[in-house]
Nucleic acid binder design. Structure first.
Length: 887
DNA sequence: ACGATCACG
DNA sequence: ACGTACGTGATCGTA
């Protein structure tokens, strides 16, 4: 759906000029109005994500309005030079935003906007008009809303026809009548003397229009009547002046104002010129700015593509290995444990050498393989982790991983929408390369192109990595993330690849047996459901299920989704008392989830040759710094319910006589919270190793330890969860099935008991608002642009994220440190034990008999001491012949 | 391709 | 008044 944003340029820049304190750049230019304008512009762009944007300006001095009324706008002071000098700056900046700007001799901005809005309306599009002038309200319709600035430009009031009715009791068309009666001092529209907004509204509520007021003037009493009678013509003329002309002969159309976003480097340059540092940071343009500076000095990128397909090619490549600047490996498919290699490219000394994957197995490739294996030869790439796995499956080892532009870019902004090389180049203002999709196609259309085209693309990618390395490395340095990258994330990626290559043995037989049982009960339950309903239907279809429950069986509708009835577990639990079928459906859901995701799903992932499952940990996905796991996800294997937990019995050691050792952090997030908030009560609770939920219950309910019953502890536990998630009374009330007021009461009690936590929550949100980002203990960073958003929902979400991310992210930092330490311990001590899995607060190992006693101490000790906090960390270890038993 | 649902921390 | 708990991935049905 197309959405236009139409901005009244003169109005907004004027507002901004008078609202903001004077501000000059180092060369003496005034910039406050441009800054205010830009703030407003970004607000509307971020909030509305328009497809079309236009800024309209008044043109010159004389408009058609002056023809009839020479005093029009006569009362206005001359534009001060401090403002006029900002118009060219603004226009230049709008160009940098790639936003269209129009003006037309003889017309004002609002006429252009009125005309455009009308066109938009006729074409079924929606529009938002932004102005400081309430006259604009006359343009509001169902499709056209109007934003009017309040308090300068920092806030806006959004008007729809309904909103105008609510506030003024008028239709949009009556706005001109309002102006006709009350006038507008700033435009020197006289109106009727003595009639302000209140009187004008009263008159219009009674008579409806200027004309009708004049026609019924004898019904009005006293001084007011005299004033109106004496100013009949003024009123009529004022109404005309206030009427926006909507038939401006525009020579451009809506298509001419379409907007596809701005180019980061262009905008970065414009901001730099204006010295808008905070805006640049807010949009995270710092890197683009730097990169661009570097790029212009370095001039354009030139390299020669060499497709290695013969003796001379290999010789050239071998000779260039010593000066390699980047190497990339492409493969087909998302799962690196299955995808086929496509080719390898090496950027070195102004050349890019491209080796089709099959050629890696030619005898001539031996020197290249030695180089790949050489830990002393630094590898700079994009997604080294994936490359290592792909190569490993072909028997080619990779060492010397030194810099990964994907991983670096993730640390610089973990929420970046497009982490592809193409996207990174764009973000850092470097010369673009084609997307993988453009070269390979996607989905069923995936094709490896002919050698020449493939070489070109791989070469471009290697060169792109070469160009990205320095700006990214510099930015890591600048943001204080040097150690996080080089000492933790980069080496961790190699450890992860090792764990994935190792894999974990999963007994297919055990899964199949369990699956047979699930299948039997699934069929049984299906029959019962059909019998209970009286007919058959697809239970897995939420659409059909909704119809059955809420239409045919007449159960009450608890909640709706945007596509129909909600039938999730929360809803079904509420419906259980009404009909026996509900319980059966819940049971069916549980079983079918287990069967399809965990029995059939996992069976498909067991490699027949080894009997193992090799997951793929993704290090650049989660915004908080956590890992994620794919193909399959081994971080969500059932545990909470006994029937699902059985699945874990299939996860076994891969060597006879070995044992599974699992260790998990106890309450790591609340311990992190105790540390970063510094709350004395919380710290003391952990120093004394109290049961934290019981302790919370004691403080929230104001009772002694022995008076805390199971229900109080359960509620306190939910409060603790809420605190970690970024508390809201609504969220807590949902979780505990209590009223919002009761939840608010719990939260208040909690904060009184743990005032340091309240201080943390307030401070971190404030800090996020000031800085635009939050950080973890290890300086991992997450930007929260929406924390300044005017939309309540988006802003609230950002605030909760500001509270949660330092907690969850620091916990992620800690277990990553522990993993590095464990890896060092295992290799350093020459142990045979292997680290296999990470599940956010848990590490799973397989351990030979003779190392069992050592590992039972070493793993929890290493985890506990991974990072020193003001409270102790606790890790609990357990042992078993499979993952189920190690609990 | 996307929403709904549900598995985990 | 606003209406969501934080972070993920896999599967299924439907558009």
């Amino acid at each position: 759906m197309d959405k236009l944003v139409l901005i009244d340029g003169n109005s907004i820049i004027n507002r901004a000029f008078y609202a903001l304190p004077p501000l000059t750049s180092s060369n003496g230019l005034h910039t406050n109005a441009v800054l205010g304008f830009t703030t407003m512009l970004l607000k509307v762009l971020e909030e509305e994500k328009p497809s079309h944007v236009l800024v309209a300006f008044d043109a010159g001095k004389v408009t058609f309005r002056h023809e009839g009324y020479s005093e029009y706008k006569g009362g206005r002071q001359k534009t001060p030079p401090e403002l006029s000098e900002q118009f060219p700056l603004l226009k230049e900046l709008l160009q940098a935003f790639s936003i269209s700007q129009f003006e037309l001799a003889g017309y004002e901005a609002d006429d252009i906007i009125g005309t455009m809005a009308k066109q938009a309306e006729e074409q079924g599009k929606t529009a938002i008009i932004v102005s400081g002038d309430k006259d604009m309200l006359q343009l509001a319709t169902e499709r056209v809303s109007v934003w009017i600035t309040r308090k300068g430009v920092s806030e806006v009031e959004r008007f729809t026809p309904a909103g105008i009715d609510e506030k003024y009791g008028l239709t949009p068309a009556q706005i001109v009548d309002l102006k006709g009666l009350m006038g507008d001092a700033s435009d020197n529209i006289p109106g009727v003397p003595g009639v302000g907004e209140k009187t004008a509204l009263k008159l219009l509520h009674e008579f409806g229009s200027v004309e009708n007021v004049l026609a019924h003037v004898e019904e009005i009493k006293g001084k007011l009547r005299e004033n109106i009678e004496a100013n009949k013509e003024n009123a009529t003329m004022s109404k005309e002046l206030a009427t926006i002309y909507r038939e401006v002969p525009l020579t451009y159309s809506l298509d001419d104002v379409s907007w596809k976003g701005y180019d980061s480097s262009t905008l970065a340059a414009a901001f730099r010129k204006l010295e808008f540092k905070s805006l640049s940071e807010r949009l995270n343009l710092g890197a683009a700015d730097e990169a661009m500076t570097a790029e212009t000095e370095e001039t354009a990128t030139h390299y020669e593509v060499i497709l290695v397909d013969g003796q001379s090619g290999w010789e050239a490549l071998n000779g260039a290995l010593a000066e390699a600047e980047a190497v990339v490996v492409d493969s087909a498919g998302d799962n690196p444990h299955q995808s086929e290699g496509i080719g390898l490219a090496l950027a070195a000394g102004g050349r890019c050498y491209v080796v089709p994957y099959a050629s890696l197995f030619a005898p001539e490739a031996s020197r290249l393989k030695e180089w790949l294996l050489d830990g002393g030869a630094q590898k700079i790439s994009y997604d080294l982790h994936r490359a290592e796995l792909v190569l490993a499956r072909s028997g080619i080892e990779l060492s010397g991983q030194s810099f990964d532009v994907q991983l670096a870019a993730y640390l610089l902004d973990p929420t970046e929408a497009d982490p592809s090389l193409h996207g990174l180049l764009q973000r850092y203002g470097l010369a673009p390369i084609p997307t993988d999709e453009a070269v390979y196609g996607k989905g069923a259309k995936f094709r490896v192109p002919a050698a020449g085209d493939l070489a070109k693309h791989l070469a471009a990618k290697a060169d792109a990595v070469r160009r990205l390395r320095e700006p990214l490395a510099e930015q890591l340095e600048k943001l204080g993330m040097h150690r996080l990258y080089y000492e933790l994330e980069q080496p961790l990626s190699v450890v992860l690849a090792g764990m994935e290559k190792q894999g974990i043995e999963v007994r297919a037989e055990a899964l199949k047996e369990l699956g047979t049982e699930f299948q039997r009960r699934l069929e049984e339950t299906t029959e019962s459901i059909y019998a209970s309903a009286g007919f058959e239907f697809n239970i897995g279809s939420t659409k059909q299920l909704g119809e059955v429950l809420f239409e045919r069986l007449g159960l009450p509708v608890v909640k709706k989704t945007k596509t129909g009835y909600s039938t999730d577990a929360e809803v079904l639990e509420k419906l259980e008392p009404y009909h026996e079928i509900v319980r059966l459906i819940l049971h069916y859901r549980t079983l079918s989830k287990l069967q399809s995701t965990y029995i059939e799903g996992l069976l498909k992932e067991i490699r027949p040759e080894s009997g193992k499952i090799h997951t793929f940990y993704r290090q650049t996905i989660a915004a908080t710094g956590r890992l994620s796991s794919q193909y399959p996800n081994l971080q969500n294997i059932p545990i909470r319910l006994e029937e699902g937990r059985q699945i874990r019995k299939a996860f076994v050691p891969s060597e006879p006589g070995w044992t599974i050792v699992a260790a998990d952090y106890s309450q790591i997030e609340l311990r992190v919270l105790a540390h970063i908030s510094g709350d004395e009560g919380l710290k003391e609770a952990f120093l004394k190793e109290m049961d934290i939920h019981t302790k919370t219950a004691m403080d929230v309910f104001g009772v002694a330890a022995d008076q805390v019953d199971a229900n109080m502890r359960r509620q306190a536990k939910a409060v603790n969860f809420g605190i970690v998630y970024g508390i809201s009374d609504w969220g807590l009330s949902q979780n505990l099935n209590i009223t919002r007021g009761e939840a608010a009461e719990f939260i208040e009690q909690y904060f009184q008991a743990f005032p340091g936590v309240r201080r943390y929550m307030v401070d971190i949100v404030e800090k996020a608002r000031t800085d635009g980002y939050v950080t973890t203990l290890l300086e991992r960073r997450r930007y929260l642009p929406e924390i300044r958003h005017s939309n309540f929902n988006l802003r609230s979400f950002a605030e909760r994220t500001a509270m949660n991310t330092p907690i969850q992210g620091t916990a992620a930092d800690i277990i990553k440190l522990a993993m590095m330490r464990m890896h060092e311990e295992l290799t350093g001590r020459g142990l045979r034990s292997r680290m296999l899995l990470q599940v956010h607060d848990e590490l799973v190992f397989e351990v030979p008999e003779e190392e069992l006693e050592l590992m039972k101490r070493l793993v929890p000790d290493t985890m506990k001491t991974a990072l020193k906090l003001d409270v102790p960390l606790l890790a609990e270890v357990s042992v078993g012949s499979n993952w189920y038993e190690a609990k």
